[in-house]
C-alpha cells in the first residue's frame, strides 16, 4: 500500500505534469512564432494564382482559423484545444479533406508501434548480451566487434536507412523499395499478407536494429567494463562462483540498470529515428504520413502527430520507470 503512495503517486503526478507541459508547448509553439499559418496559407493559394474576392477573403480566413483551431482569444483557443484533445479530435486533415486527422493517425500507428516495439526490444536484448560479453572478455572477437561498432554507431538513422536502401534494394534487389505491403493488397490475416509485411518491414527493421544495437552495445560495454572491476565481482570469483553465473547474474544484471534508465532518455530519439526511417522507406507508419503532411502543408495533421508523439514518449518513459523496480530490488523495498 505504501508503495503505491510513496512511489506511484508522485511519479504519476510528474507524468501528467510533463505531458501537460509538453502538450501545452505543442499548443503554444505555433502561436508564438511570428508567422500566421492562415495568412501563409492564403499567400500560398494566391501564389498559385487562385483568385479570392476580397468579400470572401474574410470568410475564408475565418473558416481556416476554425479549422486550425486559431479562432478567438488565446484562452479560448486553449480551452478548445483541450476539449478537442479529450475527444480525440484534431480536426480534419487538410490534405485529405475531410478525413479526420485522428483516423489517419490511428491507421498508421500500428505500423509504427509494431516496428518500434519489435526492433527496440530485440536490439536492446541483443546489445545487452553482446555488450555484456564484449565488456567482460577481451579477445580478438570483441576487438573486431568493437571496431565494427565504432564505425556504425555515429551514423544517424537517416543515413543508415539510405545505405540499407541502396545496398539491399538497389544493388542487390532482395527487398522491395517501399511500402508496407504489396500495392493493392488487402490487409488480411492470411499467410501471404504476413510474408509481404515481413518483406516490406525487413529493411526498416534492419536499419533500426543496426543503429539501435550499435548504440546500446557501446554503452553496455563501457558499463560492464566498469562493473567488472567492482569489488563484489572479485569477491564472487574468490568465493568460487562459476564464471558463467558471474557474467550473467552479477555483472550483466547490474549493468542493465543504468541501461534501462538510458533507454528511457533515448526513447525520444529512437522514436524520431523510427519516423525518419519510415520516411525513407515510405513505410506506412506515422513517419510517412508526417512526411506527406509536411510536403502538403497539412497543418492539422502535423499538430495531431505532435500531440500524439508527446503522449507516446512520456507514456513509454513512465512505463519504463514503473517497470524498473522489477529489475532493481533496491528500489523495490523502499
Amino acid at each position: 500500500m505504501s508503495f503505491v503512495k510513496k512511489c506511484l503517486v508522485p511519479r504519476l503526478i510528474q507524468y501528467f505534469l510533463v505531458t501537460f507541459l509538453g502538450l501545452t508547448t505543442a499548443f503554444f509553439l505555433p502561436r508564438f512564432l511570428p508567422l500566421d499559418p492562415v495568412e501563409q496559407r492564403i499567400a500560398q493559394y494566391q501564389a498559385f494564382g487562385v483568385y479570392i474576392p476580397p468579400e470572401q477573403l474574410e470568410e475564408i480566413m475565418n473558416t481556416l482559423r476554425q479549422l486550425y483551431g486559431l479562432q478567438g482569444t488565446l484562452w479560448e483557443q486553449y480551452g478548445i484545444f483541450w476539449r478537442r484533445l479529450f475527444m480525440g479530435d484534431f480536426g480534419p486533415s487538410l490534405a485529405r479533406y475531410p478525413t479526420p486527422v485522428i483516423q489517419l493517425i490511428v491507421q498508421s500507428i500500428p505500423w509504427t508501434i509494431g516496428l518500434l516495439l519489435l526492433t527496440t526490444l530485440f536490439a536492446w536484448v541483443v546489445a545487452i548480451l553482446m555488450g555484456g560479453v564484449a565488456g567482460y572478455f577481451r579477445n580478438r572477437w570483441t576487438e573486431i566487434l568493437d571496431g565494427i561498432v565504432m564505425v556504425m554507431r555515429p551514423i544517424p538513422y537517416y543515413i543508415m536507412a539510405l545505405l540499407c536502401l541502396i545496398v539491399f534494394a538497389y544493388i542487390f534487389p532482395i527487398f522491395p523499395l517501399s511500402g508496407g505491403v504489396g500495392i493493392g493488397r488487402e490487409v488480411s490475416f492470411g499467410f501471404d499478407t504476413i510474408v509481404s509485411i515481413v518483406k516490406h518491414g525487413a529493411l526498416p527493421a534492419l536499419t533500426l536494429l543496426v543503429v539501435g544495437i550499435a548504440w546500446q552495445f557501446q554503452s553496455m560495454k563501457l558499463i560492464v567494463q566498469g562493473v567488472r572491476s567492482e569489488s563484489y565481482v572479485w569477491y564472487a570469483r574468490a568465493g568460487g562462483v562459476r564464471e558463467r553465473k558471474i557474467i550473467f547474474h552479477y555483472v550483466i544484471r547490474n549493468a542493465m540498470l543504468p541501461m534501462i534508465t538510458q533507454l528511457g532518455l533515448q526513447l525520444g530519439t529512437i522514436f524520431s529515428g523510427a519516423l525518419v526511417t519510415e520516411m525513407v522507406f515510405a513505410y506506412p507508419g506515422v513517419g510517412w504520413i508526417l512526411y506527406d503532411a509536411v510536403m502538403k502543408g497539412d497543418y492539422n495533421l502535423i499538430m495531431g502527430i505532435m500531440c500524439i508523439s508527446v503522449v507516446a514518449v512520456t507514456t513509454s518513459i513512465l512505463f519504463l520507470d514503473l517497470v524498473y523496480p522489477i529489475f532493481d530490488p533496491r528500489v523495490r523495498y523502499r
Partner: peptide, 10 residues
C-alpha cells in the same frame, strides 16, 4: 522529452 523531429518539423 519532446520528440525533436516533430517539433522541428512544426
Amino acid at each position: 522529452v519532446l520528440p525533436l523531429l516533430v517539433v522541428l518539423v512544426v
